[in-house]
Design a protein around this nucleic acid. Structure first.
Lengths: 206, 206
DNA sequence: ATAAAATTCAACTGTTTGGTTGAAACAAAA
DNA sequence: TTTTGTTTCAACCAAACAGTTGAATTTTAT
């Protein structure tokens, strides 16, 4: 009962998380998860009753990890340029550790929009109002162009996520090996801060 | 033999294309394809010998449609601002007709990178050199900021594709129905031209 | 008219896969 | 010690699924 139980249960969960993120729900096999966890397949059903239940727990956890990372930073009190830099650093660090999470969520989200809707409602996940307010303020004070905060939010998130989501495409089109791809990502951080702040004509607050 | 043959074969192909794009390879069912094509399942194997062969033909066609749309425009002779506007118009029109193609390609590409590599080599698909040259020229003439053309290319493509790839996310986070989402996309066209040209500090050529 | 190809359909096969079972070994708590 | 929970394993079952077959019907070419 004691520690072995938690260990095994967690071991299964983490293995399932990796396999589901690699293959998606339809492509994942219970046997592959068992192999990845280095346990017998019976244990999967012993702890989680079905593939679907196991998947939902994994999915729910990943969704709850994915969005707060963005929204917490965007909802903070910092000035826009600092906030952007902080977001890019934080999100890149997170995505380096979880390189498949974005693609996983995007794919499963579009397979089962109702489930996604349910989860974000339950968890109360939503873009921070403070971000929109901040954008409006900056516009009013003449510190940046007039833009729709939603367009800006989607652009920022898209610019950050896209290389992770379309990694294979980037690697093959530019003929990059893994190391060169990581260099590309690192260079991208500075590029993005500059590109986005210029894009909205941000003037800071001297 | 004549026209019925081609009709049915094409009917199967188009149905398969839709189902594979909706569900992905692993999630697609041969029966669902047959139903969608409104023919008997036997016909699938009569024309295409296996699920895998049918999929590969669909995949190959979609890949050959997807990339040239971007690369042809980017490789044209126009000035940068016109080119960008033209790209956004062209690509949005294409994506309106094929709303799932980006996600489909991205997902299957990362499931089988070798296959993707093989296809783009055979088809000779690669980002147009003329685009890189043009960027270098514009930088040399002081018409824009110094940027890595690759970073710019990925940014442009990412900004365009992301709302399609993550459509469910956009709709649910901003609470948009289908019509409102289409409005969002339409507003995005003007936003993007402006955002990108500002992002690289483009000064035109008066 | 005749032959050849296209199409339909139901029924079938073989494989993959999710899920179950039961017995045996082990560990830990009571 | 007794009891309860954990773990392993091989074998198994039932459902889903890809793929096949063969006979009957229709369409098209010659």
């Amino acid at each position: 009962m004691s520690e072995n139980k938690q260990d095994t249960e967690e071991q299964i969960f983490e293995a399932a998380s990796r396999v589901f993120q690699r293959k998606g729900y339809a492509g994942a096999r219970m046997q592959e998860i068992a192999d990845e966890a280095d346990i017998n397949k019976s244990m999967l059903h012993y702890y989680y009753r079905s593939k679907d239940k196991l998947f939902q727990k994994v999915y729910q956890r990943e969704v709850s990890r994915f969005f707060p990372v963005i929204f917490k930073v965007l909802g903070s009190e910092r000035p826009l340029d600092e906030k952007l830099e902080h977001l890019i650093d934080t999100y890149y660090a997170f995505l380096d550790e979880n390189p498949r999470i974005a693609q996983f969520i995007i794919h499963e989200m579009s397979q089962h929009p109702e489930r996604f809707r349910k989860f974000i409602r339950e968890k109360g996940i939503q873009p921070p109002e403070r971000f929109s307010r901040q954008i409006s303020e900056e516009i009013d004070r003449g510190r940046m162009k007039k833009v729709d905060p939603r367009q800006l939010l989607i652009s920022i998130v898209g610019l950050i996520l896209f290389p992770f989501v379309a990694r294979t495409m980037v690697e093959l089109l530019f003929d990059l090996d893994e190391e060169q791809f990581l260099d590309f990502l690192n260079e991208r951080k500075a590029f993005l801060v500059d590109f986005i702040l210029n894009g909205i004509n941000y003037k800071g607050h001297e």
